[in-house]
């Protein structure tokens, strides 16, 4: 019987699908009766989804263009 602490030790590997079948069965058995760990897995998956789906920390081309031009000007002039 695994505890919530055991589950938390493996949650990263579990979410990445990086556990052997036998371990996965044990973890899923724990999830079947532990609401807290079920919520943690579900909300962690949702976190990952919104982080990967939402375009964050974009550098707009209009911002990068002048930076690139300055860099190229210095390189072409032989200045480092």
């Amino acid at each position: 019987m695994i505890t919530c602490a055991d589950f938390m030790a493996e949650i990263g590997n579990y979410m990445e699908g990086d556990v052997a079948d036998e371990v996965r069965h044990q973890l899923e058995h724990h999830l079947s009766h532990c609401q807290t760990c079920t919520v943690l897995v579900d909300s962690s998956r949702k976190t990952l989804k919104i982080v990967t789906d939402t375009g964050t920390f974009d550098l707009p081309d209009a911002t990068f263009r002048p930076i690139a031009e300055r860099i190229m000007a210095r390189i072409r002039s032989g200045e480092k």
Binding site: L40, K46, K49, T54
Partner: peptide, 17 residues
């Protein structure tokens, strides 16, 4: 983890992009 209440089903629908 301290926040262990269930999340809404579709978080992306709650806020604008």
């Amino acid at each position: 983890p301290r926040q262990v209440q269930a999340w809404t089903d579709d978080p992306e629908q709650l806020y604008s992009q």
